[in-house]
Design a binder for these strands. Structure first.
Lengths: 154, 154
DNA sequence: CAGAGTGTTCAGAGATTTCTGAAGACTCGA
DNA sequence: TCGAGTCTTCAGAAATCTCTGAACACTCTG
């Protein structure tokens, strides 16, 4: 088995490119590569050499988005966390807000520019495009979920 | 007609959230709201109050991605640029590299962690997810293009 | 081919984001 | 209720990213 640390750091770099802050990206990668099912904040901080504050912030962000969750940890005072099933689909879903914002920006733009301006044609295309994506992206992600777990009831 | 400048600035803010740098986002919005079909670098700089260097950088980036293009400008020494058709679809397509990088990061991770580790199960799901998206996202964007311009030959 | 008008580059200033670490809040068992 | 252990917060330090503007390069025109 090759160097998992390097692979994790490489993945963190990619995640950071995608918009996560560096510490959060490294924490996310650490979750992916962990040998155990769940990990504690202290373990993450020690392993990645980042401050407790950074770990806390990363965990808060990842929890809010819904890619990790607290695990009941009987007999331990430290909180345990683990990746949730379908984390990557969740992460991508969380970017739908962006698509919606684009749609709304186009809409407001048309209002501001008036319907007969040259700008209106461009803004109309933009609105249509993001409207399409706003409808279709969630459907695509749902299709992935269905393919991965056929026959499950919600 | 309401204030187009404010609508443009608002759109630029959204674009910046999406990862474009601020000057580039403002230039992109200016293209969307322009009253004319094409604009010059000088016009952009003056209108947005940004330096020539920033305008140059923004134009370079937007050209590279393929959302704007140079327009032949007979009788003018200044370069003219305009939005290309399907700019937004192009912009979204340009993010496929991200998806591919995620897929590859997962793949390398499995190699590094070995097939029987707990990490391998998580990394396998990640690889499958981004593999799916890498196939399906371009198809989705193509469907948009087809819906928008039915019956065209490539 | 000279020169005016444009475009590009890049070092450094400036703005912004991110991280740290210590103070304080919280939690749970005794 | 107390106190040890853990977590969160946040002001300021550090790191990073972005913009500026002047120097340089390029490209037409006459």
């Amino acid at each position: 088995m090759a160097d998992t640390t390097e692979a994790a750091e490489r993945m963190a770099l990619t995640l950071a490119q995608g918009g996560l802050q560096k510490a959060t990206a490294r924490v996310m990668a650490a979750f992916m590569f962990a040998d155990t099912d769940s990990v504690t904040a202290a373990e993450l901080g020690e392993q990645l050499r980042i401050s407790s504050g950074s770990v806390s912030g990363a965990i808060k962000m990842l929890s809010t988005v819904g890619v990790i969750e607290r695990v009941p940890a009987p007999g331990s005072r430290r909180e345990h966390y683990r990746l949730r099933d379908g984390a990557w689909a969740t992460l991508m879903s969380s970017q739908n807000g962006m698509v919606q914002a684009m749609f709304e920006a186009a809409d407001k733009g048309i209002e501001a520019a008036g319907p007969d301006s040259p700008a209106a044609r461009r803004l109309g295309e933009m609105r249509d495009f993001y409207g399409f994506m706003f409808r279709e992206l969630p459907a695509l992600i749902d299709r992935w979920r269905a393919e991965r777990a056929p026959g499950r009831q919600p």
